[in-house]
Simulated assay, not measured.
Amino acid sequence: MGGPITSGYGYRRDPFTGTKAFHHGVDTAGMLGESIRSRVSGQVVYSGYGASGTPLAGLGNVVAVQDAAGLTHIYGHNQNNYARVGQMVQAGQSIGSMGSTGRSTGTHSHYEVRMGGRSINPMGGTYTIQRGDTFSQIAKRYYGNAYNGGMNQLKALNPHIKDINRIYAGQTITVPDAKTSTPTSSAPVSSGPSASEIAAQQAAAAAAAAAHVPMDQLIPFGDLLALQAIEKLHLYNHQPSHRLQRLE
Rank of each mutant, 00 (worst) to 15 (best):
G58E: 10
G60W: 13
P193I: 03
Q90L: 10
D163I: 09
A178E: 05
H242T: 11
G124R: 04
G96K: 14
I219P: 13
S119C: 09
K140D: 05
S241W: 08
Q153W: 00
Y127K: 00
S94N: 13
V85N: 13
D163E: 09
N78M: 01
K232N: 14
S38I: 05
Q130C: 09
K20W: 04
V213D: 08
G92A: 01
M88D: 12
L154T: 04
R141H: 11
Q202M: 09
I5P: 06
R246Q: 03
T101M: 06
I164H: 06
R84Y: 12
V85L: 10
D177N: 12
L71A: 11
I219W: 02
G25A: 06
D27E: 13
A21D: 11
Y46S: 11
R118M: 10
G18F: 09
T172M: 15
L225M: 11
S52D: 11
Q93Y: 09
A83Y: 07
S190T: 08
K162D: 08
S119M: 07
Y127L: 03
T72D: 14
L233D: 08
P220A: 03
D133I: 11
L225E: 13
T126F: 10
A211V: 00
V45D: 05
S47C: 11
Y9Q: 04
S191Y: 02
Q43H: 01
L225T: 15
P55N: 02
V63Y: 14
S41A: 15
L235E: 01
H160N: 15
P214C: 06
M98K: 14
T134L: 00
G58S: 08
G117R: 01
A169Y: 02
D67M: 06
H242P: 12
I198C: 09
R103G: 02
V62Y: 07
G3W: 02
L225P: 03
R166A: 12
N78L: 09
I138N: 00
T101I: 15
S97H: 07
D223F: 00
I161L: 13
P176S: 02
G25W: 10
T17K: 13
F16N: 01
S196K: 14
A206K: 15
A203Q: 15
V44Q: 02
H212G: 05
R166D: 04
H73N: 08
F16I: 13
A91N: 00
M1V: 07
D133A: 12
K155W: 05
N148D: 06
D177M: 03
G10F: 04
E248K: 10
P188W: 03
A146F: 00
A91H: 14
R12N: 11
G33I: 08
H234K: 14
I173R: 04
Q171G: 07
R118C: 05
R114N: 03
H234S: 14
N148H: 10
